[in-house]
């Protein structure tokens, strides 16, 4: 029986190159206290064990997708961080893949100096916000990287109310985005 609820993502994780968490958020549908929920959600110890095991399984194994402890896992390894999307086993793999590319793409757009541990930690506010714009309580909100990125506010540049627009960066950003989109299209065309 396939799963008709929209709650299709169980967790979003960002781990460093030792499998320690940089960011981890586990989701469960709200207001369902009487239902026995996945014990992973409120047990920190289990979560960390899960992350360690998952990391061991995926480290240096360039395989993008796997099934792990009854979850569909999509991941991408960068130099010293790995980003994961933990999805429901019954969910359509390609839907999850879309959400994951939204996650990956918007990270790449927003952290324009590349994705690494330092950058993620320094811009953690952006990362938190962008994940919040992709997944809400396990429901996929949006999959288009640019739409996600454009909903995330940058840090206030100063303590004043006015925000200035950095035109230079804007053009670069547009160029980078166009490039990545073009690449994607070409790949799909092959």
């Amino acid at each position: 029986m396939s799963n008709l609820s929209l709650y299709s993502v169980n967790a979003i994780l960002i781990l460093d190159n030792h499998g320690n968490r940089i960011y981890s958020k586990y989701y469960k549908p709200p207001h369902l206290n009487n239902v026995i929920t996945d014990s992973l959600f409120d047990n920190i110890k289990k979560q960390k064990e899960f992350e360690q095991k998952l990391f061991k399984k995926t480290h240096k194994q360039d395989s993008e997708i796997l099934i792990f402890e009854n979850n569909i896992i999509l991941y991408k390894e960068y130099i010293d961080v790995t980003i994961y999307l933990v999805g429901n086993i019954n969910e359509n793999e390609i839907i999850l893949q879309n959400a994951f590319s939204g996650f990956k793409g918007s990270m790449e757009l927003l952290l324009n100096n590349g994705i690494d541990n330092k950058n993620v930690s320094e811009n953690c506010d952006l990362v938190y916000l962008l994940i919040d714009e992709i997944i809400d309580n396990g429901v996929i909100l949006e999959t288009d990287p640019a739409s996600i990125a454009s909903r995330v506010t940058k840090q206030p540049t100063s303590d004043t109310l006015n925000q200035t627009l950095d035109l230079d960066k804007g053009l670069l950003g547009a160029w980078g985005f166009a490039k990545s989109k073009l690449q994607e299209r070409l790949q799909q065309g092959l």
């Binding site: 008709l4 929209l6 757009l109 996929i140 739409s147 053009l171 985005f177």
Partner: peptide
Amino acid sequence: FPHSSGANSEYYPNSTFTTQYHALGLVY
């Protein structure tokens, strides 16, 4: 998806019409 109202207007969002998905989920 409106092009001008985002915080970072430097990006060029595609309209994915995800709202349809959410609406269908709720209606079900």
